[in-house]
Simulated scan of single mutants.
Amino acid sequence: MPSARFTRDDLLGAADKLLPDVIAPGLNVLLCGINPGLWSAASGHHFARPGNRFWPALHLSGFTPRQLRPDEQHLLPGWGLGITNLAARASARADELTRTELTAGADILKAKVAQFAPRWLAVLGVTAYRTAFGVVKAKVGPQDLDALAPTRLWILPNPSGLNAHYQLADLAHEFARLRTAAVGQESSAGGS
């Protein structure tokens, strides 16, 4: 299915729309975006804006056997994956969110983690994570956060095309590091 074309009015009309989670109990990895962009809210699919590198990075890292389209997000739980967001409100840019929205989102996220018990939570965006969880020196990679135990926490770079610090190969490498850790944990959990 080719990507949808939206007018400026379509996108502006998507502001503040909510995008449902793709979530199920016991996922291996729950991927957590910052918030839906207007393109995602208008389409009803996570990471839907053309140029967003989430879907290519997910595939290149080995999480999925092929590159999925955003409208195939419903297939993710079959591979032990899900998607949620720190803040539910759609906006043109993540920097439009307030500190209050992000910290409230962290509390909601902790409740989702407690309810659905994924093995790993991967927050996609170190700056948003630092604000939401109040951990100013957090870096990309595994984190020590007992508040989510037994769920482990990993921070991934934001896959938005606006994040110029990471090219697609770099993103895929970081996603693959998480996949290696998550698969290792899954193997050891199955063997005990």
Rank of each mutant, 00 (worst) to 15 (best):
A15Y: 14
A111T: 14
G26W: 04
I155G: 02
P36H: 00
P118G: 01
A14E: 10
T98I: 09
P118Q: 13
L156W: 04
G80L: 05
A128W: 00
G26D: 14
R66H: 05
P159L: 04
R66Y: 11
P50D: 08
G33N: 02
G141I: 05
L12I: 08
A114P: 05
L168E: 04
H165N: 10
P56R: 10
E174D: 08
A172R: 01
L75A: 06
P142E: 13
N158Y: 14
S61Q: 05
T127L: 11
W39R: 04
L31W: 08
D10R: 05
L60E: 09
W120S: 01
Q115G: 10
R93N: 13
T98G: 06
R99C: 07
A182C: 04
L162R: 14
D146E: 15
P159E: 06
G141Q: 01
Q185M: 10
L156P: 00
K112C: 07
G105F: 00
T84R: 00
G80E: 01
Q67W: 04
G184M: 08
L102G: 02
Y166L: 00
L31E: 02
A172V: 07
R152F: 11
R119S: 14
Q143P: 08
G26I: 05
A172S: 15
E101F: 03
G134R: 09
Y166P: 01
D107M: 12
A24S: 14
I83L: 15
Y166R: 07
E96R: 05
V29A: 12
L27E: 07
L97E: 09
I34C: 06
W79T: 04
S192V: 13
L171N: 00
G125H: 10
W39C: 07
V113R: 10
C32V: 15
D10M: 01
N85V: 01
S188N: 09
K137R: 14
A176G: 01
A48R: 01
G190K: 11
G191H: 14
M1E: 11
I23F: 05
D9M: 05
A92D: 13
A181K: 02
T7S: 15
A117K: 15
N35Y: 06
L162H: 12
T103K: 03
T180M: 12
A4S: 12
A114Q: 13
W120K: 07
V22S: 08
P70C: 05
E186S: 13
W79I: 03
R8M: 07
P20D: 07
A4K: 13
D95A: 13
G141N: 06
L38Q: 01
P77N: 06
L121K: 09
D16G: 10
A57V: 09
G37S: 10
A132I: 03
A138S: 15
R53V: 07
F54Q: 00
R53S: 09
V123R: 03
G62F: 07
P20Q: 10
P118R: 02
A122K: 03
A88Q: 14
P157V: 06
G51E: 13
S3Q: 10
A189L: 15
